[in-house]
Amino acid sequence: MFANVKGPSFIFWPVGTGDTTTIVVSETEVVQIDINDKQMADEEGNEHIPIVDELVAKLPEKGGKPYLSCFILTHPDLDHCRGFADLLDRVTIGEIWHTPRIFREYEDECDLSDDANAFRKEAHRRAERCIEKGGDPGEGDRVRIIGYSELFEPGERYEGFPQDEFYTRPGQEVTMLDGVDARNRFHVFVHAPFKQGLADARNETSLAMRVIIGSPGNIMNGLFLGDLSYPTLMQVFEETHGHDNEGMLQWNVLLSPHHCSKKAMYEDNVLQEDVMREFADSQLLPGYIVASSNEFPQSNSAGDNPPHRKARNRYEEIVNNEFLCTGEVSTPQQVQPIIFSVTANGIELDIQDYEMSEIAETTLAAAVAKARGNNAPPATKVGFGAG
């Protein structure tokens, strides 16, 4: 169990430059947004956690197997779904959420990673179960499609899909979690993807959402924007303002888009101050910004992938409390996530000593030994978690 958390929590895991966020809603309800089970052990050590192993060890159990209430895929890039096939094999997942983008690429499987294809196959299976049942197929088979799609139209593949229950569009709210009304502890407002961007690059079709956890009068707001860049981010803000939904932009914790990419606030190397004002205006107290990435370089060269130092500098100018990087909080000596919890005293940041599970420690030790040239075979499988 997640004994380290003090209450409903957002957990940002050290997995390199990629997104892996766990939301602990209650003792029995856990949500996972994206996964990047990547180990990069070297002779200096490894600050990345074997996340599938850790989830298997820490998730609540149901029917004798680790149980994840919901897995949410923002978009099917590898650094957001690496390890999904292993997770699906070892954990019962009550429901999955995804955008239609995973279907748009079904004719070109070579463009998707093995894990993305595993997710797509599972999404198809669940959608077909929903159609077969004509409604809720039950835990382990539920799927929610978020965005716009022609798949549900007469004659298309998912004609008959129960849209009233499992189809959500931007501007709508979700308070059901794995078949249960959880509105008193879990609330999602969907911001994107937009209908007019269906054919855009994968990053711009990311699922963007505001998530609230906690109990009435004692909540925490998280803003998760996938890998969106400046134009689409501004569309999120403008659409939300246009529908008088400003409250749905508020955040205590902001996961910086695209692993703290400068593309969130720069165009042609020019700072776009309007998006920075939007981020600042929607920030609450306390306010934290997280980069899910490796540690930052002192500077970047043209063409460098995220994280970008200049983006971090801009976020640090607006953040109310603190800017944190998963790859800097976690070290080879103390592998640990960044945890924000809702407690009786309000929102608390916890980056103290984290007790990693024995199976994750074993996998990590084997990866480090292998990287150092140990000729003995590792005790457990590495790379996508032990299987």
Results as ranks from 00 to 15, higher is better:
221 N>A: 04
327 G>D: 09
304 D>A: 11
187 H>L: 10
67 Y>E: 02
342 V>N: 00
179 G>S: 13
182 A>N: 05
153 E>L: 15
42 D>I: 10
63 G>F: 13
190 V>Q: 07
359 I>K: 04
207 L>N: 05
2 F>M: 07
142 R>Q: 03
107 E>M: 10
159 E>A: 15
187 H>Y: 11
238 E>W: 06
351 I>M: 09
296 F>H: 11
338 I>M: 00
276 M>R: 07
168 T>P: 01
1 M>P: 14
312 R>V: 03
292 S>L: 14
48 H>E: 08
196 Q>E: 15
53 D>P: 04
123 A>D: 06
26 S>R: 00
199 A>G: 09
200 D>V: 06
315 Y>K: 08
58 K>G: 00
205 T>W: 12
345 N>L: 11
71 F>E: 04
180 V>K: 14
106 Y>S: 15
151 L>C: 10
167 Y>R: 05
7 G>A: 00
16 G>F: 04
203 N>D: 14
20 T>E: 03
58 K>P: 01
321 N>P: 06
22 T>E: 02
90 R>C: 06
92 T>K: 11
58 K>L: 01
341 S>A: 01
97 W>K: 01
173 E>I: 10
33 I>H: 06
358 E>T: 04
41 A>N: 05
138 G>R: 04
387 G>T: 15
171 G>Y: 02
95 E>F: 00
37 D>L: 03
354 Y>K: 06
2 F>N: 01
120 R>H: 12
343 T>M: 03
159 E>L: 14
195 K>Q: 14
149 S>M: 05
23 I>R: 00
130 C>N: 08
217 G>D: 07
173 E>H: 09
28 T>P: 06
142 R>S: 02
89 D>H: 14
278 E>K: 04
64 G>S: 10
78 L>C: 03
312 R>T: 03
